[in-house]
């Protein structure tokens, strides 16, 4: 398992440096890659960080999905040559590109929402047995368009395929189903397909109790321990 990680910066990415810092804290070798690069550098993993790529004016992630670097990411995914993690805007980009199913739509409130949430592993991603179902993480969300939506029947298919990775949970009522801070179908907070994972919460912001939680450190550590 190699830990050479490429972090992609699109114009308007704004969590790229936080993500680089978090991965370096965990001992990863990180290289930053520009949106207009036509090839990925030699790496085992790719992270698409959070932000507002190209302003997110059209739809979140819609324009970044067509950036040259995403052609390279798409080819590498098709060859099963790399593990990909999309965080927040990165998740939105993966959905817009069609690498992950579904889309991220406006929060039910219609507003940006920044607060702490609990998420729970619903299904272990293939290759990451260390993400045990029932495992919980306290992570911040910060997005305006984080409601996961799929076409009718799509959610059942994602569950059937083992792609329903993370869901929001309400720790007070301890209700593992149905809770969603943003209107996500079945409370889905993150999904996976093959070696590609996307999630709305920000693990890179939860690297230490100083910032409110170190569950993000635990999350990224487990991700770095998975296939590469």
């Amino acid at each position: 398992m190699g830990n050479n990680v490429a972090v992609v910066t699109f114009p308007g990415s704004n969590c790229d440096h936080d993500t680089v810092w978090a991965l370096q804290e965990l001992g990863a070798e990180v290289v930053m890659v520009r949106h207009d690069a036509r090839e990925l550098p030699r790496c085992d993993r790719v992270v698409l960080p959070g932000g507002f790529s190209y302003g997110d004016y059209l739809r979140a992630g819609a324009l970044a999905a067509h950036a040259p670097i995403m052609d390279a990411v798409g080819r590498a995914v098709a060859r099963d040559a790399v593990s990909v993690l999309g965080i927040c805007n990165g998740f939105q980009i993966l959905c817009e590109r069609g690498i992950l199913p579904g889309t991220l739509w406006s929060n039910t409130s219609g507003e940006f929402l920044c607060r702490w949430e609990w998420v729970e592993v619903a299904t272990s991603p293939p290759g990451w047995p260390a993400f045990v179902p029932g495992m919980r993480f306290r992570l911040p969300i910060a997005h305006a368009q984080g409601a996961f939506r799929v076409h009718e029947g799509g959610a059942a298919q994602i569950w059937a395929e083992g792609g329903a990775f993370l869901r929001y949970v309400d720790p007070v009522r301890n209700a593992a189903t149905g809770y969603s801070p943003n209107g996500s179908v079945q409370g889905i907070a993150g999904i996976c397909r093959g070696r590609v994972i996307g999630l709305m919460p920000h693990p890179e912001r939860a690297m230490s109790p100083v910032f409110g939680s170190e569950d993000g450190r635990r999350f990224l550590h487990l991700w770095l321990g998975g296939p590469s």
């Binding site: 969590c15 978090a22 920044c114 911040p140 910032f211």
Partner: peptide, 13 residues
């Protein structure tokens, strides 16, 4: 204030 990102840049204690 929950409509403002208060945590980005990972400096906010």
């Amino acid at each position: 204030y929950r409509r403002y990102d208060s945590m980005i840049q990972t400096r906010t204690v």
